[in-house]
Computed example of a mutant assay.
Amino acid sequence: MEPAIVAFAFLLILMLSLAALPARASDFAMHCPPGWQVENGDQMLRRCISPSRDAFIEVYVYGGEAADLSAYLDRQVQALAQKGLPFHQFRKEAPGNVSGIPALTREYTGTANNALFHSYVVATSHGGKTYLLQALYLADRAQTLQPQIRDAMNSWTYPSVEQAKASPPSQTQPDKTPDAAVSGGRSYASRDQCVDYLCRPFSDSCNTYDRGADANHFRYLLCKSAWDKCYSYCTGYWSMALTCTKEAVTATQGYWISACGALAHDERAMQDCFRRGMIDGDNLLREMRGRPECKAGSN
């Protein structure tokens, strides 16, 4: 057996030994690359193993949502590296989403049993759970394996969220007068109404921008992050009073524009800025939930 395959087999056995608290009934879907071996479970939702056994993808689910995806990945990568996984050298990090829910992706490289590996690690929280994807592949087979792994990662969805997106939007438009929004703590009629009222006006300005021209352009990242987070807020907080949800979204978008725009020359600093804005917005929403004026009355 070739040394590289021996190294891969060692890592696969190691992953089989990792255990954590169970978190069943997860809202998860992802396709393995064609021809790859597929394994499913409770804690380990999906494992994909390449036919030549030189790459694998795994997705795990854990109870509880991670408030800070960056800090969560720091802990997970450190723990996995201590167990022998080759997360030795950080390559890059990028924000993303799963069905519009914010996610964070990192890439690493490292050596195990004298073989060089590249890897992806992704974290995202949804529905009271945190999902962790890890994918490792032999570096000398990157040209073949990396596109297959990326396609599988891009197929990752939350079926309940996708179903909600496909549902016909509410025909009832929100009353856009400030007095009506305050009166009685009235909430949005639905998640779709919240999205139409808060998210689309901001993101519509992105539609004419060629996102494929430069995925790291500040305007692209700003628009994408604004849409992802606004959609997340409307999914979880549409039933709060109109003015309260709007205040949190506006505060977060304003933070990104004023603080993060100045960092457009530094991709990593800009992404860190986005994360701080997301966390501040989440904290503001949680604090607002306890305010009397934010508790929506009956519609």
Rank of each mutant, 00 (worst) to 15 (best):
E2R: 01
I5H: 09
I5A: 07
I5M: 15
V6P: 00
V6F: 15
F8S: 10
S17F: 03
S17P: 00
H31M: 11
P34G: 02
G35V: 14
L45N: 12
D54E: 15
A55V: 04
I57S: 03
I57Q: 11
E58Q: 12
G63T: 09
L69N: 02
Q82R: 14
P86Y: 08
R91N: 12
P102S: 08
G110L: 06
A115D: 03
A115S: 14
V121Y: 01
A123R: 01
T130M: 10
L145F: 03
P147S: 06
D151E: 15
D151K: 13
N154A: 13
W156E: 11
S160E: 12
K176Q: 05
D179G: 07
V182Q: 09
S183T: 13
S183N: 04
G184S: 11
G185D: 08
Y188A: 02
A189Q: 10
C194W: 02
V195N: 06
D196M: 03
L198S: 12
R200K: 09
F202H: 11
S205A: 14
Y209M: 14
Y209L: 15
R211C: 04
F218H: 11
Y220F: 14
Y220G: 11
K224M: 13
S225Y: 12
W227F: 11
W227N: 11
D228P: 00
Y231Q: 09
Y233R: 05
T235Y: 04
Y237I: 05
W238Q: 08
T245A: 14
K246I: 02
K246E: 15
V249P: 00
S258E: 15
S258L: 09
D272E: 15
C273T: 01
F274K: 06
D282C: 02
D282T: 11
D282L: 04
R289A: 12
G290V: 07
